[in-house]
Amino acid sequence: MTGPVSRASVRAFYTDAIQRGRNTAENLQAATSERFNTLLESIAEATPRVALDLGYGAGTYAIALARAGFRVVAVDQIPCDPLLRRLNGAGDWAHRIEPRQCLAEDFTIDQKFGVIVAKDVLHYLARPSVEALLTSAVAHAGGGNYHYLEVFTAITRRSADGQLLRIEGEAGYTPESFRRDIERIYKDWDLTLFWSKHAEQDSRTGLNCFEAIRATVIAANRTA
């Protein structure tokens, strides 16, 4: 195994990919998932119409929330310009999205969000940062609030020459450790977890460069 990949280089990679509109091996330009679409369609009118999208990437989930009538705080470590260009003249819903450039672990959750989305971002954080972030989100949640998380566990990364790679400071969850943390943090919520195998190919070699077990979490706070 080589030394850890720096978080700065990861940030530079995603900044370049989003600014150029490139669809990377992980499919950054993908549409929202069917599970998320089903959740969004099921949300009652009583749910506060303000949402948080942590790690918005290309902006697809933030846009879906805005189209559904939510005011969206969209947070990512990359510059906001690509999302602002995508929103320019997009429609009456575009003004509902407020992009903020900020590391996910540095964002302070100090209000009630009817919906929180964190897709493919939390596994990059250190475990204490994930716990602090989600614990704060739960502490500030009200009745009828929903959290939708997609988190990679059991990650194996390889370079083009087959060397094992890891990202500096990443959580390194196993499915079991992630489940334990989620069940503890969301102990009073209705909790649904889905598990699926995930793989990405290196376009240069055709070999898998990323393998993981993706955890999809749908947490609903039914309390009044």
Rank of each mutant, 00 (worst) to 15 (best):
V151K: 02
T60L: 02
R204Y: 03
L133P: 08
L133T: 12
L87H: 07
M1L: 09
I78V: 15
A74C: 05
G55A: 09
Q201D: 08
L83R: 05
F107H: 15
F70V: 01
D120I: 02
R20W: 02
E34Y: 02
R214K: 15
F36I: 01
W93L: 04
Y173H: 07
S33M: 06
V121K: 01
L87F: 11
Y56R: 05
L193P: 06
E98R: 12
D181Q: 15
R158W: 10
T32H: 03
R71W: 08
V130M: 10
I213T: 15
A118S: 14
I218R: 00
D110W: 03
H198Q: 13
G3E: 13
D110P: 03
A58G: 08
L191D: 01
G142T: 04
E98A: 13
K187T: 10
H198I: 03
R100I: 14
A160D: 10
A31R: 13
Y14M: 06
V121P: 01
A12K: 12
T192Y: 07
A132D: 09
N145P: 01
A44V: 08
V10C: 04
C102S: 13
G144R: 04
R179W: 03
F194H: 15
L207I: 02
E150Q: 15
T192S: 12
D16C: 04
L149E: 05
A104S: 13
Y61T: 14
A94E: 10
I167R: 03
A46Q: 13
R179M: 05
S203K: 12
K187A: 14
G3Y: 05
R157S: 05
K112R: 13
E45L: 09
E200K: 11
D161V: 11
V10A: 06
I43M: 09
A68R: 10
R204T: 08
R100F: 04
Q77R: 11
R20E: 13
D188T: 04
L122C: 09
Y14S: 06
V10L: 13
K187M: 02
S196E: 15
G142W: 01
R157T: 00
C102L: 07
T15I: 06
Y56T: 08
Y148M: 07
T216K: 00
A58D: 15
E105I: 05
F107W: 15
L133N: 05
S129P: 00
G144V: 05
G89P: 06
Q163R: 14
G162Q: 06
A212I: 09
A160R: 14
W189G: 01
F36M: 06
